[in-house]
Design a binder for these strands. Sequence first.
RNA 1: UGCCCGAUGGUGUAGUGGUAGCACGUCAGCCUUUGGAGCUGAAAUCCCUGGUUCGAAUCCAGGUCGGGCAGCCA
Length: 552
Amino acid sequence: MNDSILQTSNFIKDIIEKDKANNHDLTIMTRFPPEPNGYLHIGHAKSAYINFSLAKENNGICNLRFDDTNPTKENQIFVNSIKDDLAWLGLKWEKPTRYASDYFDKLYDFAKTLILNGDAYVCDLTPEEIRTFRGTLTNPGIDSPYRNREISENIELFEQMKNGCYEEGSRVLRTKIDMSSGNLNLRDPVIYRIIKTPEHHRTKNKWQIYPTYDFAHGQADSIEGVTHSICTLEFEDHKPLYDWLLEKLKIHHPQQIEFARLNLSFTVLSKRKLANLVSEKYVTGWDDPRMPTLAALRRRGYPPVAILNFCAEVGVAKRENTIDISLLEHHVRKELNQTASRILGVIDPVKLIIDNYPSNISETFEAINNPENPKAGTRKIPFSREIFIEKSDFMENPTGKFFRLTIGSEVRLKYAYIIKCTDVVKDPKSKEIVEIHCTYDPLSKGGVATDGRKIKGTLHWVSASDSIPAKIKIYDRLFTIEKPETETDYLKYFNNDSLITKTAQLEPSIISSKEGSNYQFERIGYFVLEKKYSNNNSPIFNQTVSLRDSKK
RNA sequence: UGCCCGAUGGUGUAGUGGUAGCACGUCAGCCUUUGGAGCUGAAAUCCCUGGUUCGAAUCCAGGUCGGGCAGCCA
């Protein structure tokens, strides 16, 4: 994890500071507890970052624990992808990797302890009956008829549940708390249920019963010695149950602290909505570069440190929030500006012919790889009579502050020469400009005017015969509205222009690029090489993020 | 007409009884062989009403508004 990441204070740090002041021997222990039932996204990154950074700043420990208590939803594929994503971010967890399923035996014993103490009972009500008996938000529930079973009968029944004697859904183990509590989580919550298929990804067919989240999470925290169990706001109502179980069991009692999960503008982060985008084919998969998943951001070329810096800067608080996606992009640009190699590439090319430049020669010019980092060195780029420039860099009838090319105006070709536009050739039918004719100032080699005249506009270009065609995928925000998350018909606001594919001409040095390498195409944006060769043998680049562009 | 949580510029986030700070964004200027970056500046904020106090974003009371909770999901 990057040590240079800027940190502001937050209420969790305050709590930890106080706890440390009260107990000088305290070793801070946190954990990141994903359920292996999906891919990690930027919101998980925030949560992971909080847990990992809190441990690191306090010379503590952070575990990675998979919350794998429900085999109907979880599998090994997600365990692997989550580990990959965390490693990619550079977050290092305490070894070994933990699993809630590691504690199934202990959890089973804890449950028996509860039964023996009269704090839990086997209930034969159907799921529907349990729901009815639970009451409503405003009306108290009523006791299950099985609530006062003999302890010995409960023990026997629970053991038979474990042994697979009963059908799924026929019986559960519930705590005995308070059916009239204003907090529904305290109305005798279910702590064990029967699940026979599919088999668990780790414990296989050993268990026929599985603990619920409420029964597994706190106890797992306790077993591991977690001191601060940090989770999102929706678990606030579970905290009294978390505390109740730990007190009844008389075991180490971690402190649960809740914070507000991340929301990002112009995208969605709920698993269901993301899954819909995939299943309804709005995107090509979970790692489609438009998605907010870590796998997608990686493919998009986001540097991990930019994501970490972003997580550090969004802060930790309890109020609902929607972070402006431009803050994320800011951190991506900030990092890439320092690290990405520059190249010249023309995405929407139009041919430019320098009429007074000899057709039988070519020159090479030295280009700076990264003006922010002299150590990145230089490279050669070829120049010739016919080049490509960006269509948008020529305007026949310029309006406002247009510093680029127009008939009669002078402009600098970066690293090369100053040129002056003399004429354009249009397609007779479409009226589209097909050729721009210019003359160059032979004395301006390197782009400097010998007479000291100021040249305001500088264009990027590539030599027509030496450039390399490439496929460019340009991405935009996933949705057209700021908060699609709050809309039920959010798919209506999907941004149909979120992916645009173009063919570009790139300078030849790009040949030596490696997959995953970040580039800045000067004056355009940041790009990452996705695949060296597409079907037609040209490389494919994903746009990471555009350059900020204040052109009017 | 239950229980719990929250409210500081457009968006986030500091502040813990003493000039409301920072970041992103926006706007303007400077600089520039990237209209990028960088530099400088600007506009913009304490949910409301009372109370305590010399002094309140902060403490107290009462409101208002927003969010969460009725899986054998996590």
